[in-house]
Simulated scan of single mutants.
Amino acid sequence: MYSCQRRMKVCIPLPHAAVRVSLLVLAVQLVLLVCGGQASDNIKRCKLFSESPKEVNVLRLLEPLTNQNFSVEEKNGKESYRYQFQVCGDAGKTPGAGLVQIDQNGKETETVIGLYTVTQAIGGSDWVMLIYRNGSKYDGHCSQEMRKAIVMISCNRNVAAGTLRVVLEDRDKERDCFYLFELDSSVVCPALPSQLSAGSIILIIGFVLLSVYLIGGFLYQRLIVGAKGVEQFPNYYFWTHVGNLAADGCNFVCRTRGPEEQPPTYSGVSTEPEEEPECDDHLLPM
């Protein structure tokens, strides 16, 4: 194809259809690559407390939960707090804060419970424990150590991302105080085992092979051989004679001896030739 401009009278070759398709495929691949890179960057914002391949793999399970803000309110007498949580993202106004506590009684002051820049990820068979450390220091509890948030993410196949729940705040001790939260999600659920039996798998494989044989044979007969009508069916002459071939095979296997003579229908009829009676007249004296 050529595109000719009247003024310049110059014919410019346009890209072939195959080239256009290739360019479209390349553009789609670039978009997928960019999207995949962005998703990976979301998880990379979490800085693991102790870098290890196992914790990195556990953290990758939570990638679908990134860029989501989980919030829950808790009232204890006159006190009212709202907790906000994000997976590897800023949950509040403080940069790097993955879980914050907002006091709703006064000026809505924000207290950092844990930073996602100091993260620990522990995984089990159907759960992930996400720990954010180095939060704001306690005023008069836990020897004024830094706060720590523990988010227990449990398997629930019915929800992609459930509701954040406050379990407890353990601060009545000298060391290792923490806030404990729960969250249900299907992203931490293990893969379901295959429910197909061996027979079902064999049937599926056989159906696939049969489909490939029919489609491939049809295309070969039509495009390469140039067959028309029913002759486009692969191995048409073989399948039209398969009944006769089966009958010949059965005849060869089952009939091991040659044909036998039928027994006589009447007892008076014999199949053996009758012998002529011997004549003893020549022995008599003349």
Score class of each variant (00 low, 15 high):
Tyr2Phe: 13
Cys4Asp: 06
Ala18Asn: 12
Val19Pro: 04
Ser22Val: 08
Ala27Cys: 12
Leu32Ala: 10
Gly36Pro: 07
Ala39Asn: 08
Ala39Arg: 10
Ser40Gly: 07
Asp41Lys: 07
Asn42Ser: 14
Arg45Asp: 12
Lys47Val: 14
Lys47Trp: 10
Phe49Pro: 02
Ser50Met: 09
Glu55Ala: 09
Asn57Leu: 12
Leu59Thr: 01
Arg60Ser: 11
Leu61Asp: 03
Gln68Ile: 11
Ser71Ile: 13
Glu73Gly: 07
Glu79Lys: 14
Tyr81Asp: 08
Asp90Gly: 06
Ala91His: 01
Gly98Ala: 03
Gln101Cys: 10
Ile102Asp: 04
Ile102Thr: 05
Glu108Asn: 15
Leu115Phe: 08
Thr117Gly: 07
Asp126Tyr: 00
Trp127Pro: 06
Val128Leu: 03
Ile131Leu: 05
Ser136Val: 04
Ser136Gln: 09
Asp139Lys: 09
His141Phe: 11
Ile150Met: 11
Val151Leu: 09
Ile153His: 00
Arg157Pro: 05
Ala160Cys: 09
Ala160Gly: 14
Ala161Ser: 08
Arg165Glu: 15
Arg165Gln: 15
Arg165Leu: 12
Glu169Ser: 13
Asp172Ile: 09
Asp176Gly: 05
Phe181Asn: 03
Glu182Met: 10
Ser185Pro: 02
Val188Tyr: 00
Ser194Phe: 02
Ser197Asp: 07
Ile204Tyr: 07
Gly206Phe: 05
Tyr220Gln: 02
Gly229Phe: 03
Gly229Asn: 01
Val230Thr: 12
Phe233Lys: 00
Phe233His: 00
Asn235Cys: 09
Asn235Glu: 08
Asn235Gly: 05
Trp239Thr: 06
Trp239Asn: 02
His241Met: 08
Val242Ser: 01
Asn244Met: 09
Leu245Glu: 00
Asp248His: 11
Thr256Val: 14
Gln262Met: 11
Pro263Trp: 08
Thr265Gly: 05
Val269Lys: 03
Ser270Val: 09
Pro277Thr: 03
Pro277Phe: 04
Asp280Trp: 15
Asp281Cys: 15
